[in-house]
Design a protein around this nucleic acid. Structure first.
Lengths: 199, 199
DNA sequence: GCAATTACGAAACATGTGTTGCGTAATCGG
DNA sequence: CCGATTACGCAACACATGTTTCGTAATTGC
């Protein structure tokens, strides 16, 4: 049952992830140096590379740790449920945002992770799975609201959620504007109530 | 009027940008090597660094080149105008998307540019200005439609455009789903018509 | 206890980015 | 024409990432 050879030092994973997280949060993605992590953790670089084949993999592992498992609440009030869910996504983004580089509200880490997902097929596969899960949960929530008559019967759930989640990412990565609960409420109102006059 | 010393070889800029674009499009952001660009262009590295202080600056210059100046058309039909504008943004994203790494529909380049904007204050300033300009144009378009009664008087124009543009970026960078004119039409319909039943 | 297996540490190495120093070339102002 | 100024090319360097090699340590199955 136990693997054949010498077992890995399980303390190393914990220690390395903690040190790496501190470095990313303090100096940003570029300030995360493998050499420095190895030195501070008191292990050789080879030990790190055995667990995370690249710096990107280590960084993804760090970020994945501080992402709370997005659990969805279905109170029956689609407006409140959507706001809650968006706020959870926003909170995860803001947590990474705090790990900016030289500037305060920098979205560098999020962009780096997107790039990392594109560079390494396995990371991309992993993150896409994560996002697919989030998407499935949201679409199911919307579908339930539609079935109980809270939402239009002919709505485009995919476009709706793309818009809501996309606006959060757009703000964090592109415009740099803040994302908080108040903004989540604005988004949901805008999306649910529509913008045409002819009604 | 003319600068004091030896003038720069203007052919170098053109040649370097063309070669760098070819490299990015063929091998992705990571495949863009300063040494290789210098060699293929037949110039020294110092000549490149005199014009673009980092690889990030060169890459941004390459991408800025193939971004058509977003001109907005105001036909008086807000739905058609928004679809047109979104399609222009989508076209620019797809052009970068073609410059993927190892996988076809990779959004790595877009993510790298976001990261680059966070790494270098001047790039961030430049791109935020660019996005602010785009935002101003879109908000003005929406405002005109609102004033002529096509849209609700109490709409949230910022949230509306964040949602539309954000959905495009979200798809390109996060989910990897395609963005084309058909999707732009779905977005605009979803946003304009709203999703509640009570109407 | 012994062989196989796996983890670990130390060091050297290859590659790419970005910087620096120096000699040479081109242009302008006088 | 001459000096100041700027561009250019060549070479070397510092630094970080990531790979590889080799010797050693710990654990399992027999």
């Amino acid at each position: 049952m136990a693997p054949r050879g010498r077992p890995r030092d399980t303390q190393v994973d914990e220690r390395v992830l903690r040190i790496a997280a501190a470095l990313i949060f303090e100096r940003g993605y570029g300030g995360l140096s493998i050499d420095e992590v190895a030195e501070q953790a008191g292990v050789a670089k080879t030990t790190l590379y055995r667990r995370w084949p690249t710096k990107d993999h280590l960084a993804v592992a760090v970020v994945a740790r501080l992402q709370a498992d997005d659990e969805i609440t279905d109170t029956g009030d689609i407006r409140a449920d959507l706001v809650d869910y968006l706020e959870k996504i926003a909170a995860a983004l803001n947590r990474m945002r705090a790990a900016g580089g030289h500037r305060g509200p920098s979205a560098g880490t999020v962009g780096e992770l997107v790039a990392a997902a594109a560079r390494h097929e396995d990371i991309g596969h992993l993150t896409r799975e994560q996002y697919a899960k989030r998407n499935t949960l949201a679409l199911a929530l919307i579908e339930r609201a539609r079935l109980r008559g809270e939402l239009r019967a002919d709505l485009d759930a995919e476009a709706l959620f793309d818009q809501l989640a996309g606006a959060l990412y757009y703000r964090v990565m592109i415009t740099g504007a803040p994302v908080d609960r108040a903004y989540a409420e604005r988004l949901v109102s805008c999306a649910l109530e529509g913008n045409m006059t002819c009604r």
